[in-house]
């Protein structure tokens, strides 16, 4: 498993303490799983994602990620309606391991309240939360 110093943590996304990330893209937000979480889970074998059109509030469970020996729920760091899901993960769930911030994205939402993005952690506060 990676040391904290080895983690890849881009500056252009915001983080949740549950280890999801969110990136603003136009008026929509892309959600994924941070490097720390994919590393802790190990080889991911399956990602269960919601349907397009599903609506969630902030903190709702929107899916699960499975590795061989563990399963973890995914929580939405901000409320919104699902406008796209990453279909590529069906065939290649390992993208979440190998490219968590780009090809391994999870869902795209139309946020209910964009200010919820501002409440999420930036890289340095997220790092602090990992140290704690």
């Amino acid at each position: 498993m990676k040391e904290i110093s080895q983690l890849v943590l881009p500056e252009d996304v915001k983080y949740a303490t549950d280890h999801e990330w969110a990136r603003l893209d136009g008026e929509e937000v892309v959600i994924g799983l941070a490097d720390y979480a994919q590393d802790q889970l190990g080889d991911i074998v399956f990602v269960e994602l919601p349907a397009i059109g599903d609506h969630f509030d902030k903190g709702d469970e929107f899916g699960t990620v499975e590795s061989v020996k563990a399963v973890s729920e995914l929580y939405l760091p901000m409320g919104g309606e699902v406008v796209a899901v990453n279909d590529a993960l069906e065939e290649a769930p390992d993208l979440v391991n190998t490219d968590p911030y780009d090809k391994g994205w999870l869902i795209r939402i139309k946020p209910t309240d964009l200010s919820e993005l501002g409440e999420m952690l930036d890289k340095s506060s997220y790092l602090e939360s990992l140290d704690g």
């Binding site: 074998v45 399956f46 590795s67 061989v68 563990a70 399963v71």
Partner: peptide, 13 residues
Amino acid sequence: TLAAREQHIRREK
């Protein structure tokens, strides 16, 4: 395989 469905991993879920 697909053990993540099962009680020893997912417990109450």
